[in-house]
């Protein structure tokens, strides 16, 4: 996800993970950053300007899609792909002589 802000001065963006560990994720004069790859859980984002000015913290909840749905769809995809490969390879060997 994209996190954006407006500021006239350099800023530091910190991320607090569900275990309470705080780490900086951005430091500079830009106006946004792309965050990805976070595990499930509630996170807090804090933005601090060089002068010490602070923006209101933002809470971020991460909840990935259902793993069972993903595996079910992957299974269906594997079946469709496998059958497609079989038709091509058998057809190549037999050169379309069915029926």
């Amino acid at each position: 996800m994209h996190v954006g802000w407006t500021s006239d001065e350099p800023v530091t963006l910190t991320l607090t993970d569900p275990q309470g560990t705080v780490r900086p994720v951005y430091n500079g004069t830009g106006d946004g950053i792309f965050l990805s790859g976070l595990a499930d859980g509630d996170y807090a984002l804090g933005l601090v300007g060089e002068s010490g000015a602070r923006a209101d913290p933002i809470t971020l909840s991460v909840e990935h899609q259902s793993l069972s749905q993903a595996l079910w769809l992957a299974g269906l995809g594997a079946l469709v792909f496998l059958l497609t490969v079989i038709v091509i390879l058998r057809g190549t060997r037999g050169e379309g002589t069915d029926g």
Binding site: R23, V25, S36, G37, L38, A39, H64, Q65, S66, L67, Q69, A70, L71, L73, A74, L76, G77, A78, V80, F81
Partner: peptide
Amino acid sequence: TKPALLDVLFPAAIMAIF
């Protein structure tokens, strides 16, 4: 920092494959 990117069971990524 981005543990989900290394997760073998990352649901969105699994769905994207096929």
